[in-house]
Simulated scan of single mutants.
Amino acid sequence: MGRVKVGITVGDTNGIGIEVILKALEDNRMLDKITPVIYGPGRVVSFHKKALSLNTNYQKINDASEAKGGKTFLLSTNDEEVKVDFGNATNDSGREAYSSLKTAVSDLAGAKVDVLVTGPINKKNIQAQGFDFPGHTEYLTSYSNVEDSLMFMIYNDLRVGVATNHLPLNQVTKELTKEVIVSKIKLMDQSLRRDFSIPRPRIAVLGLNPHAGENGVLGGEESEIILPAIDQVSKEGILAFGPYASDGLFGSGSFKKFDAVLAMYHDQGLTPFKAIAGGGGVNFTAGLPIVRTSPDHGTAFEIAGKNEASPDSLRSAIYLAVDVFTNRKRFKELTADPLVPQKK
């Protein structure tokens, strides 16, 4: 297979997005299997490169179709002067983040790039630009016109998904239904098979309440919602188990017996995940017709412009996007009907 063309959005231009992208692509070994296309305001990318004394070489292009071979390319989404204010969420940085994302997604839809890696955004200032979604996951789900998707955190063999995404904690129980959990388990099972080449995945499902409800003493969601969802998918052949208490499953190391874990809400899953991944994890959106990954960190305004950000998570996000893209091709070939009717 030839090089995979990777579209990369810069995220908030006052954060660490451009820094980690340029740092990751400084290593020419990254270009052995990929052709990266960075989407962002040209002068801002150049400013970051000079301010942080980075040595990444890139070639400017006007259209993603021009990107070929083992080089890094920059498709400028704005050639005007844009003020950089490291560490602050501004209207300018939110506007440029949205412009980068829209252009890259359009090129992905038009097959000008193969996969998408998104830099971190500030959810408040990008929404001021008309981005009416809690985050990338919800935006890309809507854009792809699919009913549901799964926020799936990946670090080596540790895979953690969440049943509810970016929700205030007091809204989780309102959104958490048997139907939601069934949908997320099915998306996780499908992704493990198609995107990670695991033929018979084992999924651990967490409870919502402390000690997974303690047989109803600490809450009834486990017996009324979560367990019936597990029973339903189990009857359909999915290997789902639980509900488990989060502290016990992760604290004992029992999560290693499973191919993935489904948490009920954001912090329940991401707190142990990030504690284990140590900054090297990747956020993958499962269930979409396109491949999208991102680093598992945010804009990190507190260190923006200080040349302290690690590119490890961004680099892992690129590699995972390529792996998923390759695995999907292989899965499609393996599951294709060999008995194609002959034309008469």
Score class of each variant (00 low, 15 high):
Ile181Cys: 01
Thr9Leu: 10
Ser252Ile: 09
Lys235Leu: 07
Ser144Ala: 14
Val282Gln: 09
Met188Asp: 07
Arg315Tyr: 14
Ser246Ala: 15
Asn55Pro: 03
Arg29Glu: 15
Asn209Pro: 07
Ala51Ser: 14
His297Gly: 04
Tyr244Trp: 12
Val117Gly: 04
Glu80Val: 03
Ala89Phe: 12
Pro210Glu: 11
Ser313Lys: 09
Leu249Arg: 07
Ala336Ser: 08
Pro168Leu: 04
Pro338Leu: 08
Asp85Cys: 06
Asn327Met: 11
Glu175Val: 02
Asn165Gln: 00
Ala67Arg: 05
Lys332Ile: 00
Arg202Ala: 12
Lys329Val: 01
Lys71Arg: 15
Gly269Glu: 14
Thr164Ala: 03
Thr326Asp: 11
Ala286Glu: 01
Ala229Asp: 02
Leu101Thr: 15
Ile318Phe: 06
Met264Cys: 05
Gly279Lys: 10
Asp312Tyr: 15
Ser100Arg: 04
Ala109Gly: 13
Arg315Trp: 08
Lys23Val: 02
Gly7Pro: 14
Gly220Asn: 15
Gly220Trp: 06
Glu81Gln: 12
Phe250Leu: 00
Thr335Gly: 05
Phe131Ser: 12
Ile198Ser: 10
Ser93Trp: 06
Gly40Pro: 09
Ala277Val: 09
Val340Asn: 02
Leu218Arg: 01
Phe331Tyr: 15
Ala275Met: 13
Val10Ile: 09
Gln232Val: 13
Leu22Val: 03
Ile230Ser: 08
Pro120Gly: 10
Arg194Gln: 09
Arg3Gln: 15
Asp247Phe: 03
Met264Leu: 14
Gly253Tyr: 03
Ile226Asn: 11
Ser144His: 01
Ile198Asp: 12
Ala286Trp: 02
Asp27Phe: 01
Leu227Cys: 00
Lys102Trp: 01
His211Asn: 06
Tyr155Gln: 00
Pro168Arg: 06
Ile121Lys: 11
Leu25Tyr: 12
Gly278His: 06
Ile38Pro: 07
Ser106Ala: 09
Val291Tyr: 02
Glu308Lys: 15
Met153Thr: 02
Ile16Tyr: 11
Glu26Gly: 04
Gly269Thr: 14
Gly161Trp: 01
Ile16Asn: 10
Gln171Lys: 12
Asp85Tyr: 08
Gln268Met: 08
Val115Pro: 08
Lys178Met: 13
Lys49Gly: 02
Ala260Glu: 12
Leu208Cys: 05
Gly2His: 07
Ala204Lys: 10
Asn307Trp: 01
Asn307Phe: 01
Glu179Cys: 02
